[in-house]
Amino acid sequence: MKIGIMSFAHHHGEAYIQNLRANPGVELVGVADNESDRGKRIAEQHGTQFFQTYNSLIDAGPDGVIICSENNQHRPLVELAAAGGIHVLCEKPIAATVLDARAIVNACNQANVILMTAFPMRFSTPLMEVKSRIDSGELGEIYCFSATNQGELPKKHRDWFVDKDSAGGGALMDHTVHLVDIMRWYLASEVREVYAQTNKIFHAEEVEVETGSLELITFEDGRFASIDSSWSRPQYWPSWGGLAFEMITERGAIIVDAFRQNLTIYRKDLGRAGWAYWGSDANQAMVDEFINAIQDNRQPAVTGYDGLKAVEVVEAAYRSAEGGQPVSLPLE
């Protein structure tokens, strides 16, 4: 199974190299990046081939590619891969707009290639455990969620994360989609309505996009959930952020912290405590699923359609934040 990586605009791309290498069925054919200095450096570091253009990587005939570009570059790269009959694992959010997300899904459907959205939380072992407890009936009916996916300002990884054009937005765009996807998965229901409030108090001088974001979403069956996707973790917090929620059911509450499995290490070099994660690597399980889906010629556990549905919620949230009232889905 030959896999390539397109763009390292998203820093996850380097982690995916490790994940691909850890899968014995995979041959990393090489990487391409429009920022050739960055691409060459990473290719050298990991001992893989650097392709000067995305087209030349496609011509090398990979079975699948992982796309880690800026959000607004997902569409042209997915369309290029799909046109070449190559399966796609696309970084989240699958696009910055519903328009692009639909085009991405359609392009892959028409080309009959697999489109998987990089939603690693679907492969988080604590979150999978909760899913199986829901499905077993042990927890009874689910009523609502209070959820957080807060982070630090991601600018330290890449500048484009805080650029309105490249990313499509700020904290709301960056972190809402994971929890929306988890809730759609748990509830097997679609979002009907979205309310959002945003602000820019954190890093007000540094960025133009929103850094504070709270949403309250309602599903078709009336169940509801709040999502805090703020970039509210300071850089001196023990980790980058986290994903956690309280789920209220007819039996009470389940409180889940997907990144709780860590050591606290008090480090002289940092001058503070840090959290070192020892839980299972969800990215590995996600990449393995992509490979298995290609191998078995089937849909992956999380698809491009799931990515599109999450982007719809994000776009509705921006409209609500602007208008001050909840916004109904589907969008007009």
Binding site: G140, E141, Y143, C144, S146, Y195, Q197, T198, N199, I201, G212, L214, E215, L216, T218, R223, F224, S226, I248, T249, E250, R251, G252, P326
Partner: peptide, 29 residues
């Protein structure tokens, strides 16, 4: 303010839960 709440009518499930988002005049949420 925007708020949602759920109150179970099932006597075996004594559950009430509320969520609210406030926007303050100074811009805080």
């Amino acid at each position: 303010i925007f708020a949602k709440k759920v109150s179970s009518g099932n006597p075996d499930a004594p559950i009430d839960y509320g969520l609210a988002i406030l926007k303050h005049e100074n811009g805080a949420i």
